[in-house]
């Protein structure tokens, strides 16, 4: 049931992308996101598309698996772009009832659709190929300099890793409680809004209680292992850049440079 949501989940397989240093993947995702918002023309998007396609190919994560979890997000995207069609002013294309559809509106909608879907796929690619632990290790290391201005980097990344770690656990728990309540005749598939909301109570109350219980247990277990924050903590597997990571950085730079050059010199516009 809920197992279908793949957002933020790790997909176990053997690939170059999986072996890469998490810092490269984090930086890469950030740079990729920025590159999507640099130019508003098709050239940049074609490059972004090609880049994304090749990274997906390298990652060895089945595309079907990746998209399966994005269905609900896609609905949201669709609504966003529809709003864009109706609310952008410019050269009118045609009129439906009271709404004027403009050239710019359609273009905007398409761009937003492309941007956001690439953004989501790009970032889910990072979580699919990086374990939560690696991810927070990378984040902690990348944000390390902020410690100097008293930002609690370690604490934040620890909270993040715990949150990420708990996603699948809570999903499983939700699935179990849903089934248990369904066995008692609960109906989660009702079409009526009020009934839908009412049906949430038997699910959410036990879920919250179990989340608190788990959080409590975890805090206890961490204290029992003498955890007291990041001060003086050493790593079992310190992050070290390898050759492949430098290559990846190189590829990233080439990608960004080509987006900037092509986006500026040979812009292709929609409509």
């Amino acid at each position: 049931m809920l197992r279908d949501i793949t957002l933020g989940q790790y997909y176990q397989t053997e690939s170059v992308l999986h072996r890469m240093d998490p810092r490269v993947k984090l930086a890469g995702t950030l740079i990729y996101m920025i590159s999507l918002f640099l130019y508003k023309n098709l050239t940049a998007y074609i490059l972004a598309f090609l880049f994304l396609l090749s990274v997906i190919k390298i990652s060895k994560v089945p595309f079907k698996y990746m998209v399966k979890g994005l269905k609900t997000v896609m609905v949201l995207l669709f609504i966003t772009s529809i709003f864009n069609i109706f609310y952008t002013k410019g050269e009118p294309l045609f009129t439906i009832w009271k709404f004027v559809i403009t050239k710019e509106g359609v273009a905007n909608a398409v761009y937003i659709m492309i941007r956001l879907s690439f953004l989501i796929i790009g970032s889910s690619l990072m979580t699919l190929t990086t374990t939560p632990n690696q991810l927070t290790d990378g984040l902690e290391k990348l944000l390390g300099p902020l410690k100097k201005i008293k930002v609690p980097v370690h604490e934040v990344s620890m909270m993040m890793s715990i949150a990420l770690r708990f996603i699948p656990i809570l999903m499983e728990e939700t699935d179990k409680i849903m089934k248990a309540q369904m066995a008692r005749g609960a109906n989660f598939e009702s079409k009526k809004l009020m009934e839908k909301i009412k049906a949430m109570v038997p699910l959410l109350v036990p879920l919250f209680i179990s989340a608190f219980r788990r959080a409590n247990d975890l805090a206890m277990a961490m204290e029992a292992r003498c955890y007291q924050g990041g001060e003086g903590r050493t790593r079992m597997k310190p992050l070290v850049y390898k050759k492949i990571d430098y290559v990846a950085y190189g590829v990233l730079i080439i990608y960004v440079a080509s987006v900037i050059i092509c986006g500026r010199l040979i812009p292709i516009h929609l409509l």
Partner: peptide, 15 residues
């Protein structure tokens, strides 16, 4: 589901 009643493991977690 009413005729085949299923009590899950740790059923108290569903209260």
């Amino acid at each position: 589901r009413s005729k085949v009643g299923l009590v899950f493991q740790y059923p108290e977690h569903q209260l």
